[in-house]
Design a protein around this nucleic acid. Structure first.
Length: 150
DNA sequence: GCCAACGTTGGC
DNA sequence: GCCAACGTTGGC
């Protein structure tokens, strides 16, 4: 069992959308580090913190779980898609995605500001200045600690 | 292989 | 809306 944190803009796709859809592909990731984690490391059942970015109160708002391991992100092949990438060859896909499944919303949003206040979490890429990774691993200690804040 | 220019992310 | 930080691109 591994733990992850995934960022999404709530205006585009937030925890509410996932709650209604239950299972959705996590597509549109166009960053190699994040791609590698989805393609190579994520396993069905892994737990995910759902993080809202680029909004009034950025922070962790819910929990999801990995519903499929990595598979090619087909939106990269579709010229009409927002995340079309002409360099992604269907015979050798450049981008991958996983499906994620809604687990629950947190009782409250644990804001980035609050997460920064805890020395126990200082090694998380999330709280590092300038970090833009949209998919990142979370240690079991960090996972449990954050849940204890809820 | 270097690095300047550019585009994007995302907090504030 | 601003802008710092970072990743990518492409000329050389």
């Amino acid at each position: 069992m591994q733990y992850w944190l995934m960022k999404s803009e709530p205006d585009v796709f937030g925890i509410d959308h996932l709650r209604k859809a239950v299972i959705e592909p996590w597509d549109g990731v166009r960053n190699y580090q994040a791609r590698n984690m989805m393609r190579d490391q994520m396993q069905v059942g892994d737990q995910i913190f759902f993080y809202h970015s680029n909004c009034d109160v950025p922070g962790i708002t819910g929990i999801a779980e990995v519903a499929t391991s990595g598979y090619p992100d087909k939106t990269a092949f579709d010229p009409a898609a927002k995340y079309f990438d002409p360099k992604s060859d269907p015979n050798n896909p450049r981008w991958y995605r996983v499906d994620v499944k809604f687990v629950r919303e947190l009782n409250r949003t644990i804001s980035l500001q609050e997460l920064r206040e805890h020395p126990e979490l200082e090694n998380m890429p999330l709280v590092r200045k300038g970090n833009r990774l949209s998919v990142m691993p979370v240690t079991e200690q960090e996972w449990q600690y954050i849940l204890s804040l809820e």
